[in-house]
Simulated scan of single mutants.
Amino acid sequence: MHRHVAVGGSSRMLRPRQGWPALHAIFNMLALSCIIISDLLLNVHGLKDLKIFVPEAVIMGNAATLSCQYDLEKAALYSVRWYFGQEEFYRYVPREATPTFVFPVAGINVDLTNSDATSVTLKGVTRDLTGTYQCEVSEDAPLFHTDIRSAHMQVIELPKDDPAMQVDKKVIGVNDNFKAVCTVGPSYPPANITWYINGRKVYKTPLQRITQDAFEGSTTYSSLEIYPHSQVLQGFFQAMPKYQTSILLLCEVSILHVFHKNVQQRIGLSMAPPTTISPNLLGLEGSKRYVNGDPDNSALTGAAQCSCSAIGVLTLAVATLLAAQL
């Protein structure tokens, strides 16, 4: 429809501007293109769900297999790269004639027969290979989408000797102090020592003192000191003599989840009061004095020593009385 406008006593017809239809068409084409591109991007198939699997702990000298799992859907793989820290040590490129590449990194020895597009195996790992590992996956053209994941691995050096335990008493009474020491040789990282009595973990309290000294490259040492009426022993003494006559003391040595060893010793419980019979009268060497006062932990421990002079006086008195009767 055209409009007529009177100008100076005459009328003039107004027509639509000639450029508007062309601009409108261009705008519609651009909008449609954006919609098509967005739809293509949303429906494109490519790299997703990248996951890395690295052993948390590996014993020194063993092999370690690191794997990288991913889903390319319909996209093609361009490369898989492995890094130790920031240094690349292994690459897999399927389009190459020789897909696998190994780069020199100190301490790393790649087992090519057990390495491929999803995993890489390291032979004879050393302590120096403790650290962070990264897996980087890239899809092929046209997008070359790349993703990366990282994980930490600990290389463990085991102690050369089994753990050992020493106790200061083999029989303890309700009012006795008790001390035990557990040791294990050097390891990396230092071992952790845990104490148990009859399968129950012993916790640190004012009456149950636990100390541990652990330094890299030296023996790990832990001591357990139990004082009278401690919580862990109270129940055992209350159950005597009908149910409980001894306890099983155990020290467990562990390094992460790959090393567990223990040593145990049975400790007797005694409710008997101290005897006054001298061990010397029984032909025992109980009169020897030790720092802990009890070399053999027998039931005679703590007994008062009868003096030979007292026995002589008693014998003389009996003889005198017999003579008076005569």
Rank of each mutant, 00 (worst) to 15 (best):
M1K: 02
M1C: 00
R3V: 11
G8M: 06
G19E: 07
W20K: 09
W20E: 04
L23G: 13
I26L: 15
N28W: 15
L32W: 11
C34I: 04
C34H: 03
C34N: 02
C34S: 08
D39V: 07
L40Q: 15
L41A: 06
V44K: 10
L50M: 04
I52H: 13
F53V: 07
F53Y: 06
P55N: 03
N62D: 07
A63G: 13
L72T: 04
A75K: 06
L77S: 03
L77G: 02
Y78A: 07
R81C: 11
E88M: 15
E88I: 11
P94V: 02
E96N: 14
A97K: 10
F103L: 03
F103T: 09
V105K: 00
A106N: 15
G107P: 05
I108Q: 04
N109G: 00
N109R: 01
D111W: 05
T113N: 10
V125G: 09
L129I: 02
T130E: 12
Y133V: 05
D147K: 02
H152V: 15
V155R: 02
I156L: 03
E157I: 14
L158C: 02
K160N: 01
D162V: 10
P163Y: 00
P163V: 00
A164M: 10
M165V: 15
Q166P: 00
D168Y: 08
A180N: 14
G185S: 07
N198I: 01
R200T: 15
K201W: 12
T205Y: 15
E216M: 13
T220N: 05
T220Y: 05
Y221S: 00
E225K: 12
S230I: 13
S230N: 14
V232K: 15
F236W: 08
A239P: 01
M240C: 06
I247A: 01
L250N: 14
L250W: 11
C251V: 09
C251H: 09
C251R: 07
E252A: 04
F259L: 08
R266A: 13
A272M: 06
P273T: 01
S278N: 12
L284G: 06
E285K: 11
Y290A: 14
G293A: 09
P295F: 01
T301G: 13
Q305I: 14
C306H: 12
S307A: 05
L314Y: 15
T315A: 07
